[in-house]
């Protein structure tokens, strides 16, 4: 059983990552911030449910995801805001991420993917979950994880702007 102080420390240490996950899910900065705050409130309410010694970041991610799926996304869909405008850019290239124009291009490309693919890309390629961990976290078969990654890669390969280089490509043997 965890104390509220332990949960609070876990939240403090993971605020930015939680916000980034919320951003990947919602594709909206303000919604991401709402999600983090709602996650904090929920996590502190349920502090006794966290098992000390397990990964608090995963526990918090799961809470955030649950709030997104069951509450905020559902509400946005009811209000007709459930679908991302593909022309809306998540980051204005060269302004909000002034130090990294290229990062903005990549994020905007990922932003155009369907939500399930965006989320899987973040969890596997950014958060570093194994395929099996991602499958368990998302409650899907590993095959679904792999097909989402393949579909994301396929779409991103077509969207890739000139000048972007591929990552994760092992030495071309052919």
């Amino acid at each position: 059983m965890a104390s509220r102080d332990e949960i609070r420390a876990g939240l403090s240490a993971n605020l930015a990552r939680l916000w980034r996950y919320g951003l990947a899910l919602s594709a909206a900065r303000d919604v991401a911030e709402d999600l983090v705050q709602a996650t904090a409130l929920r996590a502190l309410e349920r502090a006794e449910q966290f098992q000390s010694g397990t990964r608090i970041d995963r526990w918090l991610f799961a809470i955030l995801r649950s709030i997104w799926l069951n509450e905020i996304r559902a509400r946005r869909i009811r209000q007709g805001q459930g679908f991302v405008d593909p022309d809306q850019v998540l980051f204005s290239d060269g302004t909000e991420i002034e130090t990294n124009i290229f990062a903005g291009q990549v994020l905007n490309a990922v932003h155009r993917l369907p939500e399930a693919q965006r989320e899987t890309v973040l969890l596997v390629y950014v958060e570093g979950l194994s395929y099996a961990e991602a499958a368990e976290f998302l409650g899907t078969p590993i095959g679904t994880i792999m097909s989402r990654l393949a579909a994301a890669r396929s779409a991103l390969g077509r969207l890739r702007a000139p000048g972007m280089s591929a990552q994760g490509t092992i030495n071309d043997r052919r």
Binding site: A16, N100, A103, V106, V110, R153, L156, G157
Partner: peptide
């Protein structure tokens, strides 16, 4: 085709991390 879709996700999302309104949260 699949390799071409491998973008520098970590670098890009780390830039997003730096955009998080941590102080306010």
């Amino acid at each position: 085709e699949l390799a071409a879709g491998g973008l520098p996700f970590t670098r890009a999302f780390d830039a997003a991390l730096a955009e998080a309104p941590v102080a306010r949260m």
